[in-house]
Amino acid sequence: MNVALKVLELLPWIDWAAIVVFFGGWSGYAWFARDRSLTRPSILGATNRVRSQWMLQTTYRAVRVLDGTVIQNLSTSPSFFASTTVLIIGGLLAVLGTSEKANELVRDLPFAASNNSSVLLFDLKVILLLVVFVYAFFRFTWSMRQYTFGALLVAAAPEAEQFEAQGLSREAFANKAGRMVGLAAETFNDGLRAYYFSFAAVGWFFSPVVFMVATAGVIYILFTREFRSEVLDVLNS
């Protein structure tokens, strides 16, 4: 009990409230987006249908070099972001080593709150960003591996004429392979979502109120892009 009270005393209550809003908004929106995509039109649902159609067409091709090339190209995005995230993590660790000097620069930011003067508080803000980008790194690297698994499924698929000769189901393969590539895309989307929320976390350097407002703004942007965008209209047309 005493330890918990000491931890709570490290930050003002409004900072704790901002942290709760941040993680609650992030996890809550992730759950909401996944649940809503099962019953409502969404970018995720629309692209998953396209992936299943793609894998169904794969079963009719005698040569699947095109499909392997597409999967390889798709995997370059998480690979790029994973490499970039490592550099960001290294930069944040370097900032932690020079907290006092960096904190002096932050205090000079326009509209920055006066409580930014605490070096401990500054370190906690940097650590929050580290947590966000470490999470993003793991999601990007896992997405890369899942694309590899998808490539293996395509490579192991029976020849086009064997589906009829052996009575194999094209739809079953398309659903399986499409789901694997879809999981890779979903995992990559988790990493991108972490990048979006990292911009909200930057708002904490100004004030906890800006932090909360930025979190709400990021959630609104993500919602409109995933459920109300023109891209979704095109995919569903």
Rank of each mutant, 00 (worst) to 15 (best):
F140N: 01
K125H: 15
L130T: 03
A165Q: 12
F138M: 08
L152M: 15
R139E: 14
A113Q: 00
F173Y: 11
A156Q: 15
Q146V: 13
G150K: 02
F111V: 14
K101H: 06
L152Q: 15
A157N: 10
F173C: 02
L124R: 03
Q146F: 03
P110A: 11
N116H: 15
A177W: 12
L128D: 03
M180H: 02
N175V: 04
R170I: 13
W142L: 09
R179G: 11
S143P: 10
A160K: 12
N116P: 13
N103Q: 15
E186Q: 08
V132G: 05
Q146A: 04
E171G: 04
F149K: 05
Q166S: 04
A165T: 06
A174S: 10
A151T: 07
M180P: 01
P110H: 08
R145T: 09
V181K: 01
R145D: 07
A185Y: 07
S118R: 01
D108P: 01
F111L: 14
L121P: 01
W142T: 11
L128V: 03
T148I: 03
N103T: 01
M144V: 09
L128R: 02
A165H: 15
A174H: 08
T148A: 07
F133D: 02
E161G: 03
E159N: 12
V126W: 11
F138S: 07
L152S: 13
F173H: 05
V106M: 05
L109C: 01
F138G: 08
A136T: 07
N115V: 00
V131P: 08
I127R: 04
T98Q: 09
L168K: 08
L152C: 11
F149T: 06
